[in-house]
């Protein structure tokens, strides 16, 4: 739709016309702001905890466990140099052999949600899967944070279920 609009504007005499081809889906999925009626609904990006610990594939489980427990977390994202999520370590994974490399233990290709997903939609899936939280990543796969199920439950119970 937008390419046709861009060409139409050129035909109407506009000299400098740009087409943001990825569109608003890309903008919102990156966690950038939204206007309109839908902006009032609770979104995952606004509820997710942004201080989620992360580690590299080559690190040892023992050192990661110490770091994660020191900040009172139970999960850790595994990321590359660009902060793209490669895996996830849950609490039982952090109790594995402390000398094992993260890459050997991590859960590869974990489920992720975009920051513009509605909290109510994601909460329903968390309930069905009976998990305590889920990774939140931007449209380019970089880590944004962790949506805790209890945070999502509180948001849904606050009277604005999304």
């Amino acid at each position: 739709m937008s390419p046709r609009a861009a060409w139409r504007l050129e035909s109407l005499g506009f000299a400098e016309v740009y087409d943001y081809t990825p569109g608003e889906a890309d903008w919102f999925a990156y966690g950038w702001p939204m206007e309109g009626a839908g902006a009032a609904l609770p979104r995952v990006g606004a509820v997710a905890r942004l201080d989620m610990p992360h580690c590299a594939r080559a690190e040892r489980i023992g050192e990661v466990r110490d770091r994660v427990q020191a900040v009172q977390w139970e999960v850790c994202a595994v990321v590359n140099e660009e902060m793209v999520v490669l895996g996830l370590l849950r609490a039982p994974d952090l109790e594995a052999d402390p000398d094992a490399a993260v890459e050997q233990i991590m859960r590869a290709g974990p489920a992720t949600y975009r920051p513009d997903a509605l909290v109510s939609d994601v909460l329903e899936r968390l309930r069905k899967r009976e998990v305590g939280g889920v990774l939140v990543t931007r449209s380019d796969g970089t880590l944004l944070g962790w949506l805790r199920r209890d945070d999502a439950e509180r948001t849904a119970a606050s009277g604005n279920p999304g």
Binding site: P22, G23, A25
Partner: peptide, 20 residues
Amino acid sequence: AETADRLRKDLPVIVYCYDY
């Protein structure tokens, strides 16, 4: 031409829709 009349031709214009 009529609806685009609210836009300035001397400034850049960015159009977008939902996705690709």
